[in-house]
Design a protein around this nucleic acid. Structure first.
Lengths: 339, 339
DNA sequence: TGCTCGTATGTGCACGGTCACAATTGTGAT
DNA sequence: ATCACAATTGTGACCGTGCACATACGAGCA
């Protein structure tokens, strides 16, 4: 004759306590793995929990402990990279017992950014991961003087020093050097939007390498990450064939550019060498397979959470993690210039 | 002489109440836009809130109301489609005042699924969106007899009738018909993993159309959605050139297959017609630009939330929404067979 | 004036956990 | 048996908000 009282609502810790013949506090101790609980008591309580299909109420726990165990993710899901880091972030957070709440950024006007941040703050997140590394986002973050720790994937460590990144500059230099070593001297750079910190870093890497190798530089084209842009930019650029190679700031733009090349009758890579950035899974199957710079987004996401969690617990961030060095992957889209 | 007491902790409604010279309940009423509050009182309270930088405590609110205003998102971020629906889902939910918590599924073994669901349930989500439409996920959902409403993006409406989908079958039939109309008779289908409901629906669409048009069918190849698979499958298939067209269940596999074709020296689309599925933004820039079936993932995501929210408030789902009909986009990768 | 009614506000408790502290039980040495 | 002390368990308050109900105020009407 098991009498379960919980009529309408979900069973609470006190319901469990009553049925197990203990106090609610003892149940709480079982929940939190308190050391001094007799095994027999623990077993009894666990049994009742099982019977009642008891689930701790997260809100209550958060309220009394004053900790939400939730982290906010501010994302501008526009490129491939972020998408694959996000999964890693969520996994890592979940493993650490945290919940992840995501807010998307469709526009980058300050109001949207503020609204998204507000949404996150309203839910008492303990920390924020920013995966929309646009300059403006940081400005807003700075102005609002957010009082929770936050980490970002950007490459320059403003604020907090809580930033983490693939070393974009080095990657871009590798790509550029590869083209120069092949003998190219007229090289364009198809850059990303300049309010993206990563785009800026890649561009700077390109310019630095060109300058160091003493190759005359052509003004970078500012794009928007999309294949469409790469295509249209390509159609424009190819009117004057005053270059033999191009370094695109991501693989999508590289793909669009290749499309334009072929429409213009160029044979790749004979007439034009192309390097991308990111190494999306499809890049190996472009035609020709794309030479590009591989970033380990998943690793990035994991480290990101690690950094945030450490700054959540210790207060101070742990020792500065090594930047992840990206890797040039040479495939078929690059060759020496015709002459 | 503004005396703010809140020393360590964040200000609560009682702090606001005290400083505004009203009761905590009045503050609560202001928060919830209760009709009968004098404008002057409301203004006063709002002012104090502003001064104190007051933010309502979500946990407390959830606790006392018994509603978390959170929905869970169970996702298996493997294909392109989901990624772009997710953003739409989050936006729509946010607009409706809900928070979205995401759990990722890396494996599809029952334990992982259960763990992910558990994670979501533990945080008292009010509803769940399943965006990992694999058969097993449903089995687990069924077994666990989850007691919160859930919606899914699949195409067959098991359980709850809370499913929503692009009409995959129709899309697949359109693609197949296009190839048949061009004159192809030996057509392969590169299917997705069979535990994916969508993969199954697309395959069935293919088979149905072939059967109806009385074209002899060749056994579908079961793939895994990746471009890599498309490539390797292509290398195998092309040893025997016993077909003139292929319908791939997504664009990535189509891309990999194109890669294999070119390696084998085929000229596209002269020697081989290819149709994909999804219309990822890059598809228009493949070489040749890919004929494919466009799905409106964003719309799907929005409807998904609409459906879930209605079943959250009304209890019963609103009238069954129309399935979204996908659209065939004919580009350069299809042509009549050589003969 | 006394009564009713609607608007505006206050009071006290409940929600489901955790915390600090008190109380009880068990153990071993004397 | 007695005591000190550790191990185990219980008691009550509290976290911040919303709800049900009570109260105060003012207007309209007999």
């Amino acid at each position: 004759m098991t009498l379960d009282l919980p009529k309408g609502r979900a069973p609470s810790i006190r319901d469990v306590a009553r049925l197990a013949g203990v106090s609610h506090q003892t149940v709480s101790r079982v929940l939190n793995d308190h050391p001094s609980i007799r095994d027999s008591t623990k077993a009894k309580v666990l049994q009742v929990m099982e019977d009642l299909q008891y689930r701790p109420n997260r809100a209550a726990r958060a309220l009394s402990r004053g900790r939400s165990r939730t982290i906010g993710l501010l994302s501008a899901e526009s490129a491939y990279g972020p998408a694959s880091s996000i999964a890693a972030i969520q996994d890592a957070a979940q493993e650490a017992g945290y919940y992840v709440n995501t807010a998307n950024l469709t526009n980058v006007d300050p109001e949207s950014i503020e609204a998204a941040l507000d949404h996150l703050m309203n839910q008492s997140v303990e920390g924020i991961v920013v995966i929309a590394p646009q300059v403006r986002v940081f400005d807003v973050l700075e102005q609002l003087s957010i009082d929770v720790p936050f980490v970002t994937l950007s490459s320059r460590g403003l604020l907090n020093d809580n930033s983490l990144s693939v070393d974009q500059m080095t990657g871009a230099r590798q790509a550029t050097r590869h083209l120069i070593d092949l003998g190219h001297r007229q090289i364009y750079h198809l850059a990303g939007p300049q309010d993206w910190i990563e785009a800026e870093a890649r561009m700077r890497g390109f310019l630095d390498e060109m300058w160091e190798k003493d190759v005359p530089t052509m003004a970078p084209i500012l794009g928007d990450w999309t294949a469409d842009f790469g295509y249209h930019a390509g159609r424009e650029l190819l009117r004057m064939r005053d270059f033999t190679a191009i370094f695109a700031s991501n693989d999508q733009m590289a793909l669009g550019f290749m499309h334009a090349c072929r429409e213009a009758g160029l044979v790749l890579p004979r007439d034009m060498s192309i390097v991308g950035f990111d190494d999306i899974p499809e890049a190996a199957h472009f035609w020709p397979p794309l030479t590009t710079v591989r970033q380990d987004f998943a690793e990035l996401g994991r480290r990101c959470i690690a950094l945030l969690l450490s700054s959540l617990s210790d207060g101070a961030p742990s020792e500065r993690p090594e930047p992840i060095v990206p890797q040039l992957v040479v495939r078929g889209s690059t060759a020496p210039p015709l002459f």
